[in-house]
Nucleic acid binder design. Structure first.
Lengths: 153, 153
DNA sequence: GAAAACCATGGAGCGGCTGCAGGGTCAAGC
DNA sequence: GCTTGACCCTGCAGCCGCTCCATGGTTTTC
C-alpha cells in the first residue's frame, strides 16, 4: 500500500506519516522500484497505535517509549504504569486550570450586554482593571491607553 | 526603569518582554545613553494587561486586537464580545475533550495492578487493541509487535 | 581593579505538525 | 504521441509562545 492509501485509511496526513518516519516512530517501509514508499499491514497497525496514543495526548517521545515496551515484552511494567500516571497528572492539572479559566471568561462575557462603544465596554474595563490590580497597586494610573500604541505591527 | 526591574515586578521573563516588543505588542521604550531600555509606568501597565490576557489563554494576536480596541475607544464593542465568545468556545471544546481523555487514562490506569511483565500489561494490551479496533477491523493481526521496530532513534 | 550582575543583539531550538518549492512517475483520455 | 491530473519524492521554512545561547558591552559592588 502506498502512502496515500495509508493516509486515507488512518486519517493521518501524509506529511505527518513521513514526519513519524523521520523521528523513527514508524519503521522505514520498503520502496517500490520508482522510489515510492510501500507499506504493509503492520505499518497500518503501528500508525494506528501512535494515533491512538496521540489522541490520548501522549507526547511522541513517550509513545516511542511505549513502542519500546511493546518490542521488549519481558520488560517491567512499572514504567508503563508510571508513564500513564504522569500523563494523568498532567491532564488533571491542565483540566483544573482550564475550569478556572472558563469561569473567568464566562464572568467576563456577562459584562458586555448590548452594543456600545468600546470605551464603555465592561469586558475591556474588567481586563484593564484586573491587570492593574495584579501587577501594580502602586502607581494608580487609570487612563484608557495602557501605555500607548506600539510603533508598528 | 530598566528591563530587569520590569521583569521582576511583573514576573515576566526578560526575553519574553523583548519578544513582545519585537511583535509590536509592547511599544518601543526610550533608550538610556548606554542603549539600555528605559521603561515608564505605562509600560508596566501594558505588560500587565498582556500577561493577564495570556493567563486567560488569549492568543497574542488577539491581545493585539484588544489593545487596538483600547486605543480606539469609539470602536464598536461587538467585536470584543465576539473575541471573548470565540475564546470561551475554544476553551469549552478543549475542556470537553480533556474530560474524555481523563476518563480514558483513568480507566487505562486501573488495568495495571501490581508489577509484572510488559507482555501481560493490561495498559499496553488495551492500547494496542484499541488502536487495532479503531483503524482496521479488516486484517486482524493480533501479534505483539505492531509492525516491528523502527530503524534507529 | 577584579568580579559579579546587568544589558544588548541575533539566531537557534522546543513539539507536533503543516505547507511549499521543485521536481519525478504513472494512468486515462484525446 | 501528448496532455492532464493524480500521485509521489526530498528538503526546507513556518506556525505559536516562548526559552536559551553565544558573544560582547556596561554598571555596580567589594
Amino acid at each position: 500500500m502506498r502512502i496515500g492509501e495509508l493516509s486515507r485509511i488512518t486519517g493521518v496526513d501524509i506529511e505527518t506519516i513521513r514526519y513519524y518516519e523521520k523521528l523513527g516512530l514508524m519503521p522505514r517501509p520498503d520502496r517500490s522500484p520508482n522510489g515510492y514508499r510501500s507499506y504493509r499491514p503492520e505499518h497500518l497497525e503501528r500508525l494506528s497505535f501512535i494515533r491512538h496514543c496521540r489522541a490520548l495526548d501522549v507526547p511522541l517521545t513517550e509513545i516511542g517509549r511505549l513502542l519500546d515496551f511493546v518490542a521488549r515484552p519481558a520488560a517491567d511494567c512499572g514504567d508503563i504504569d508510571q508513564l500513564i500516571d504522569q500523563q494523568l497528572t498532567r491532564v488533571r492539572a491542565r483540566l483544573k486550570s482550564m475550569r478556572a479559566l472558563e469561569k473567568q471568561l464566562a464572568a467576563l462575557r456577562t459584562r458586555c450586554g448590548r452594543p456600545h462603544d468600546a470605551a464603555a465596554c465592561g469586558i475591556l474595563q474588567e481586563l484593564v482593571a484586573a491587570a492593574q490590580g495584579e501587577a501594580c497597586a502602586c502607581h494608580g494610573n487609570t487612563s484608557w491607553t495602557i501605555g500607548g500604541r506600539a510603533a508598528s505591527r
